[in-house]
């Protein structure tokens, strides 16, 4: 009988699950394919987090420290699970580093993959150096200076385009990525803090700053930082002769097509299913739902379940999710997983 849970993925969800399993008095083996723990906020260098306002490297860094300092958690970095044998209560996992581990249950915390803006060529990413993604903009905020990558000038006007790689049937992405509206409002304020003379415009189809994010981000960004929200989804980004970017859309409230010059255009990229999911589904014998995320069991009595007994999941592996909710789900999945151990 095993007293160990296998946790796959060392992002906010997986870190939370592993810490929870240890706190409950059991052991965890944490397998992370990258050479660092922390998941997307660390790997992509996010700036200040929604909603806490803490720097990602501090907040998520604390989670990493907690896990790495815990003797009950064995961490394998730059490692993947290549094979899973056995059944619920008694699994044997083979790792890519040659190790095998005996575990009673599994938590898949394998997260998401950032949308690659190259798949939306009409919005200019990859063509114009001053078209960036939110992850690149977060890194620029982290560096403390807002400048145009093309020539280093301070931008007069920045446009953030929402729903890039989300809510778009043309490219097979029929989901809302949930967090990018709030992340963009937050990013707009960070830009204004660092570069008060820069004007920031957000182009939206709907604003989804749900729950308590409404006043803290949407309202505040307007009232305190004068961020402008334009109801228009952009059709294309081109460049004018003077090198500035031209953004073309319909102002749907004024009802006319518009072409507006900008210095930087930011894509608020969405959260794709983890590109490893087909492989994960095969290795762990779990199903994927129609968009390609891990298929979730009915939630009311089989919380954090998958299509396979003894295998649980949490966070962005299930679909677009916030950090706070990924962390809470990680704890819940950990609880389900240790309950299997104590019963076995």
């Amino acid at each position: 009988m095993s007293d160990t849970v296998l946790v796959v993925g060392g992002g906010p969800a997986g870190l939370s699950a592993a810490a929870g399993i240890s706190a409950a008095g059991f052991k965890a083996v944490l397998v992370e394919k990258e050479d660092r723990l922390g998941g997307a906020p660390i790997l992509s260098g996010y700036a200040k987090l929604v909603p806490s306002g803490e720097w990602a490297k501090d907040a998520i860094g604390r989670m990493v420290e907690q896990v790495e300092g815990d003797a009950n958690i064995q961490v394998h970095k730059s490692t993947k699970v290549t094979k899973l044998d056995g059944d619920a209560g008694n699994f044997t996992a083979t790792l890519s580093n040659g190790d095998t581990v005996q575990v009673g249950s599994v938590v898949l915390a394998t997260g998401f993959t950032h949308f690659d803006s190259i798949n939306k060529p009409e919005w200019g990413f990859g063509t114009f150096p001053d078209v960036l993604t939110t992850t690149q903009m977060e890194q620029m905020v982290g560096s403390g200076k807002i400048t145009c990558p093309s020539d280093g000038r301070v931008p007069e006007r920045v446009a953030i385009l929402l729903c890039v790689g989300s809510r778009d049937r043309q490219i097979g992405r029929e989901w809302c990525s949930k967090i990018c509206c709030t992340v963009s409002a937050n990013l707009a304020m960070e830009i204004k803090e660092l570069s008060p003379e820069t004007e920031v415009f957000i182009y939206y189809m709907d604003i989804r700053t749900f729950g308590l994010y409404e006043d803290k981000f949407y309202w505040k960004s307007q009232e305190e930082f004068k961020v402008k929200y334009v109801k228009a989804r952009i059709a294309e980004v081109t460049a004018s002769d003077d090198g500035r970017l031209l953004v073309k859309g319909e102002d749907t409230l004024v009802k006319r097509p518009i072409v507006i010059p900008f210095d930087i255009v930011v894509h608020a990229i969405g959260m794709d299913p983890n590109e490893d999911n087909p492989e994960i589904a095969e290795t762990f014998g779990v199903g994927l739902e129609k968009h390609g995320y891990i298929d979730k069991a009915e939630t009311y009595t089989n919380t954090c379940g998958t299509t396979r007994k003894g295998i649980y999941s949490c966070g962005a592996a299930y679909g677009p999710e916030t950090i706070d909710d990924s962390i809470a789900q990680g704890k819940a999945a950990g609880l389900r997983a240790v309950a299997d151990l104590s019963r076995a």
Partner: peptide, 15 residues
């Protein structure tokens, strides 16, 4: 309809 205006923004006649 998502009411996004992409169609109108790209439409040559709307110009």
């Amino acid at each position: 309809c998502l009411n996004c205006g992409i169609c109108t923004a790209t439409c040559p006649s709307a110009q």
